[in-house]
Computed example of a mutant assay.
Amino acid sequence: MFKRIACIRIGGGSAAHDAAEEAPTAIFVNGRHLTTVTLSPGGFEDFITGYLYTEEIIGSADEIESVRIEGNRISVITKNVFKRVSVKKTILSGCGGAVSYIDTRKLPAIDSDLMVSVPEVEAAVAALAAPGPLDAVALAGGGRIVARAEDLDRHNALDRVIGRGLQDGLDFSRTVAVGTGTVTSEMVRKCLIAGIPVLVSTGVPTALAVEVAEETGLCIVGFAGTPEMGVYAHPERVIGLGA
């Protein structure tokens, strides 16, 4: 995932350090080009399983017949080879062709009674560990990390751990997603598709992410692992607030 590169320092002299590699990767489903994404190299099978699931192209890992990885090309055959697919972005609504807002009625709501304690949140963030130049995302359940991934983009890392969870038969309704960076509405959408009830981040959520989470039952915890840690949506899912 890293390559040694050299630089000339502004103050004089030279140095070398590890830089994250990028892999522009073309995705084909049933022989048709779906999209091209930029990923960290490796772990493509976890990513493609999670990505196709959160884009609602498949409903489970079992719907994938085969995955072939050739360099920076991922070719997927689904069991329904005649299925035509397209990328679904965050569902928006508007009139006269003008997109104006996210229609939360078209998004699934969280159906889980999971509650987490503040110590559990803190332990999950500590187990995530410092990611360095990459974003990191993990799924925690039963007091331990059950899946973890790093990528150039936290959305891709989230797809990777969801893909791993699908292949392992994980019950997402009993898990917490823990990651680095800003929580976006797209990350909220991915958690809603998977049914993950709690999303924790070392960063802060966007205002739109909080609005969507409030309407769909997702709990968001921001600034986790810092004195500024706070719950931005559905605090009833967190035990020990103010303790």
Rank of each mutant, 00 (worst) to 15 (best):
E45V: 02
I48T: 05
I48D: 08
T49M: 12
T49F: 05
T49I: 05
G50W: 00
Y51M: 08
L52C: 09
L52W: 00
Y53S: 05
T54L: 09
T54A: 11
T54D: 14
E55H: 08
E55W: 02
I57T: 03
I57V: 12
I57R: 10
I58Q: 15
S60I: 05
D62K: 13
D62L: 05
I64H: 12
S66D: 15
S66M: 15
S66N: 15
S66G: 10
R68I: 14
R68W: 02
E70V: 14
G71H: 06
G71R: 14
N72P: 07
N72K: 10
R73D: 15
I74H: 07
I74L: 15
S75P: 04
S75F: 01
S75E: 13
I77S: 08
T78P: 00
T78V: 02
V81G: 11
F82M: 08
F82C: 03
K83W: 01
R84G: 03
R84I: 01
V85E: 12
S86K: 09
S86E: 10
V87C: 06
V87P: 03
V87T: 05
V87M: 14
V87D: 12
K88T: 01
K88H: 10
K89E: 09
T90C: 13
T90E: 13
I91E: 15
I91A: 14
L92C: 07
L92M: 13
L92F: 00
S93L: 07
S93T: 08
G94D: 14
G94C: 14
C95R: 13
G96V: 02
G97F: 00
G97E: 15
G97I: 00
V99I: 13
V99Q: 12
V99T: 13
S100M: 12
Y101C: 06
Y101H: 06
D103R: 06
D103A: 03
D103S: 05
T104R: 07
T104Q: 08
R105T: 07
K106E: 07
K106C: 04
L107T: 06
A109M: 15
A109P: 03
S112V: 01
L114C: 10
M115H: 10
M115P: 06
V116Y: 08
V116F: 04
P119W: 00
P119T: 02
E120N: 11
E120V: 02
E120R: 09
E122T: 00
A123M: 07
A123S: 12
A124Y: 00
A124C: 06
A124D: 12
V125I: 09
V125T: 03
V125E: 14
A127Y: 00
A127S: 12
A129T: 12
A129G: 05
A129W: 01
A129M: 09
A130R: 06
G132M: 05
L134T: 01
L134N: 09
D135R: 10
D135S: 07
A136T: 04
A136W: 00
A136E: 07
V137A: 14
V137K: 14
V137I: 11
A138L: 09
L139Q: 07
L139K: 03
A140D: 11
G142L: 06
G142E: 08
G142M: 08
G143C: 04
G143N: 09
G143M: 11
I145V: 04
A147W: 01
A147N: 12
R148Y: 02
R148S: 06
R148G: 06
A149F: 00
A149I: 01
E150T: 02
D151H: 03
L152E: 09
D153T: 07
R154F: 01
H155N: 11
H155C: 10
